[in-house]
Write a protein that binds this DNA or RNA. Structure first.
Lengths: 105, 105
DNA sequence: TTGACAGGTGACCATTTGGTCACCTATTAT
DNA sequence: ATAATAGGTGACCAAATGGTCACCTGTCAA
């Protein structure tokens, strides 16, 4: 449950979600490439990447003097399965309920 | 996109997720009832509830001197649809890829 | 081998956040 | 009416967070 907390915390920041989006569009980017996509210095990006890496949302591979960053969707999938879907069920149920009530009118 | 940020931030805290869990198990609890479930003072719980309410994850109804809190799954569902599912797709694809590679061996 | 380039570290600062407390208001029951 | 109960407000504090900077290390190309 502690690992999931790191993922939630990592996802809480818009800059980090933007980084994930950037990697989603184009996987395996370097730090400098990612820096260009955000209105932030390299150091800021580096910190965010470290958080994402700690949450296993991003995995890296060194290639010479470059460090490539890859998106890892597994933790998000885990959140989906263990948490989000649990709360989505009552949503669907509520929709069905509304539909039901409408039909009874 | 701003509303979604509030939801992500609200979900980032374990105490708030615990509150949602408590409401999931038993909807429509009062502040005092929720306070008993967390190792925290009433004021701490109140603050968390305010964050959840601002993110529309919890909706309230006054009933005399009591304030009842209800879980609202809609924002979570929106996150699921707009964000989580987007990242879950490559996960499924990756699984299929692994399966494929295994079968080729 | 010397420079240019990609990345890393530690300190530092401002702001936000989680949490508590003293004190106040509103409603209910006796 | 009065006491007990449920909730609310503002100030306050410690810790975490987002972000920057100066400076350092490692790697590649000419």
């Amino acid at each position: 449950m502690d690992a999931m907390d790191a993922v939630f915390k990592a996802l809480a920041d818009p800059s980090r979600r933007k980084l994930l989006d950037a990697l989603y569009k184009h996987d395996g980017q370097t730090l400098s490439a990612l820096e260009r996509r955000l209105p932030m210095t390299r150091f800021g990006v580096m910190k965010h990447l470290r958080v994402l890496e700690a949450a296993h949302l991003v995995i890296t591979r060194r290639n010479g003097r470059e460090k490539l960053h890859f998106l890892n969707a597994v933790p998000i999938r885990l959140i989906h399965d263990r948490w989000v879907s649990k709360y989505s069920v009552p949503f669907a149920a509520a929709l069905a309920e509304i539909k039901h009530q409408l039909e009874e009118t």
